[in-house]
């Protein structure tokens, strides 16, 4: 499994180069960053070219020449680079925006608005399920309160003010939950990278990297310069 060992070494090396920014800005991180941009763009370009090949070239060679039209109609997009004729780029872009928006908007209002209202119509009191009733009251008045919180045309007074304050706390709870989940997600990414670094033979690079950082820290401390912080 030489190729697997080589793959692990390269992955670990690139990971350590990217993690080096945590100590300070350095060339190794910049190289990793720029390589990431180039590789990602190259990979995306290949997949897109394959899509065009499968959906334009192959049908055209089979006689369905109508699929040449979208390819030809996309060529004016490259007038983006012309100073004088850049307005031509707007024509195919307008079509792309039109379809992109049209695909979303009609279905969006149903799933994000009417269906959400339907799912919020909940029984506020069920004798056999008091706990469920309690939760339903929180949800129904929470949704109303949070929506009212964003109504700025008039200053809320009286019961409306109570509702909007309640809605504000509901929003804070949901932002807190979002932070908790988001943070857990980011930690999972770090765990994934560490699991790669702890595979053999990545250990060699990890120990080397630690050695380099330790020497760098000792040099910085002994010269009494405060290193530039990365955050």
């Amino acid at each position: 499994m030489i190729s697997e060992s080589v793959s692990i070494l390269i992955s670990a090396g690139l990971t350590l180069m990217a993690f080096s920014i945590l100590y300070r800005e350095n060339r190794a991180f910049r190289i990793a960053e720029y390589m990431y941009v180039g590789a990602g763009t190259g990979y995306g370009a290949v997949l897109s070219a394959k899509y065009v090949y499968d959906n334009v070239w192959i049908p055209v060679t089979k006689g369905e020449t109508v699929w040449l039209l979208p390819f030809l109609f996309s060529l004016p997009l490259y007038f983006y680079f012309s100073k004088r004729y850049s307005w031509i780029y707007r024509i195919p872009m307008a079509a792309i925006i039109g379809v992109g928006t049209g695909v979303i908007v009609a279905a969006d209002f149903k799933s994000r608005f009417t269906e959400q209202i339907r799912m919020t119509i909940l029984p506020l009191f069920t004798a056999k399920d008091l706990y469920g009733s309690f939760n339903n009251i929180i949800i129904v008045f929470g949704v109303l309160g949070a929506l009212m919180f964003f109504y700025f045309s008039r200053e809320p007074k009286g019961p409306i003010r109570v509702l909007t304050t309640y809605g504000k706390y509901i929003l804070m709870a949901s932002f807190g939950a979002a932070f908790g989940q988001s943070f857990m997600g980011r930690l999972s990414l770090v765990i994934g990278r560490f699991q790669t670094l702890f595979e053999w033979p990545a250990w060699i690079l990890v120990l080397t990297a630690f050695g380099i950082v330790a020497i760098s820290v000792m040099r910085d401390l002994s010269s009494k310069k405060k290193p530039r912080s990365s955050a």
Partner: peptide
């Protein structure tokens, strides 16, 4: 798997720190 995956996931993993 050798180049894009480690770089892409590490860039996002940095945000954890």
């Amino acid at each position: 798997n050798t180049i894009i995956v480690p770089l892409d996931s590490t860039m996002f993993a940095l945000s954890g720190f």
